[in-house]
Design a protein around this nucleic acid. Sequence first.
DNA 1: ATAATATACCTTGACAGGCGAGGTATTATG
DNA 2: CATAATACCTCGCCTGTCAAGGTATATTAT
Lengths: 113, 113
Amino acid sequence: MALQSDLLRGYTDSIILRRLAGGDSYGYEINKQVSELSGGAFELKEATLYTAFRRLEQAGHVSSYWGDERTGARRRYYRITEAGRLRLLADCLAWQETKELLDRLMEEEKGNE
Amino acid sequence: MALQSDLLRGYTDSIILRRLAGGDSYGYEINKQVSELSGGAFELKEATLYTAFRRLEQAGHVSSYWGDERTGARRRYYRITEAGRLRLLADCLAWQETKELLDRLMEEEKGNE
DNA sequence: ATAATATACCTTGACAGGCGAGGTATTATG
DNA sequence: CATAATACCTCGCCTGTCAAGGTATATTAT
């Protein structure tokens, strides 16, 4: 649905950073985690995911390295940086504030003039 | 801040519909109301506002008419339609769900494996 | 009188993020 | 041998936001 993706827009980065805050990971796995966490209701599209990685790396919020898998497809791992953790913290605060704001703006009015 | 506007993206329409649910209004006033409701922390940019009106009218969620002011600048009033009320209701539900979703995706993990 | 401010509307063009559609390569399974 | 799962990637379109510009009327200050 469009509304949901529009709302989540810009939070793609934050969602990824949150996943990486617990330890290094790679695209495919992050995608699965997000999908599971949302009970299948939401999933990052691949194009969105990889675009976000480029953006995050360029911003210095993550760094990446190739895993040394003996078997299976190669994986590019991502690690959150210190700047990334700060960014994540800021995003969480922003999210709390935005929740309050939209709640107030969407809320049904009682006692109208 | 960019994050906030990105998150609100797409909810511009809902915010406007909510304002109109209590009675007809016009752009400038809606803008002021939103600004006041948010304690000055957030405001719809004019270009965004009028773009949203066009979109809403085209979708049949609002209708518009010129007010008959004797004095001052002319005003274009907007009225929410039945379809608009349904849309608003759907948006509110979507917002509740999205809140839960992003909360779950942004939440700090305890008891990690 | 005139400049400034507030009210009130509008459009254009650039920009950014999401994503459909397409692609590659490896390994396991039927 | 074909299909599916894993795993990565890019191109180009679409859509919503918004800075910057514009118009017109009425009030207030100089």
